[in-house]
Nucleic acid binder design. Structure first.
Length: 179
DNA sequence: GTAATGATCTCT
DNA sequence: GAGATCATTACC
């Protein structure tokens, strides 16, 4: 089984919270344990990637391009790599900055390397079910900003939500109409 | 030790 | 389309 994909899908619509700030996750990407050259864990365990091989529900935070932090949640059982990048969320409360895009999201929530490895069921970063049981329509597309394994359809987002970074509709190849 | 490489964002 | 900016990694 590949829980990572299920987790990536399942996180859409969930509430992500840090301190008094929280929002609704609207965009995620899955990074798999096998056949995924884009995953940081693709070349085995290193000091940075060790948490990805640990138990699920923990935060994998790293610095990209020397200036932005990205937040991931470990998805697979201990011993197996697999995590989900949180790319964007819809602000609900306590958010003063934009949350559209992984770098902006971590900045808005105040997430940095200190949160590396923290347990998402205990805090300070936590994930909750949304109160309103609104059913969301989830669309899939290739991931954004990667060079390797760029074709894999592992990006999940709430269709049409304006806080999604990048395309928030799918475009029909033949008709050119957006879906 | 040294050098190459980014799962981004902002500005031009 | 380019630059900012630095932790991490691979390779000497």
């Amino acid at each position: 089984m590949r829980p990572t994909i299920e987790v990536a899908r399942g996180l859409i619509g969930k509430v992500l919270k840090h301190g008094d700030a929280f929002g609704r996750i609207v965009e995620t990407e899955a990074y798999l344990s096998v056949d995924d050259a884009a995953a940081h864990s693709a070349n085995g365990m290193t000091p940075r990637t060790r948490v990805i091989f640990g138990p699920p529900g923990h935060a994998y935070v790293y610095l990209v391009y020397g200036m932005h932090y990205c937040l991931n949640i470990v998805a697979e059982p201990e011993g197996i790599a697999g995590c989900v990048l949180i790319r964007a969320m819809e602000p609900l409360e306590g958010i003063e900055l934009e949350t559209r895009g992984p770098g902006k999201l971590t900045r808005a929530l105040g997430i940095n390397l200190r949160h590396y490895g923290c347990d998402v069921t205990r805090g300070p970063i936590t994930v909750h079910d949304s109160k309103d049981g609104a059913v969301v329509e989830i669309a899939v597309s290739p991931r954004i900003g990667i060079q390797k394994s760029a074709d894999l359809p592992l990006r999940f987002f709430e269709r049409g939500n304006r806080f999604v970074s990048g395309p928030r509709f799918l475009t029909d190849v033949t008709s050119g109409r957006r879906r």
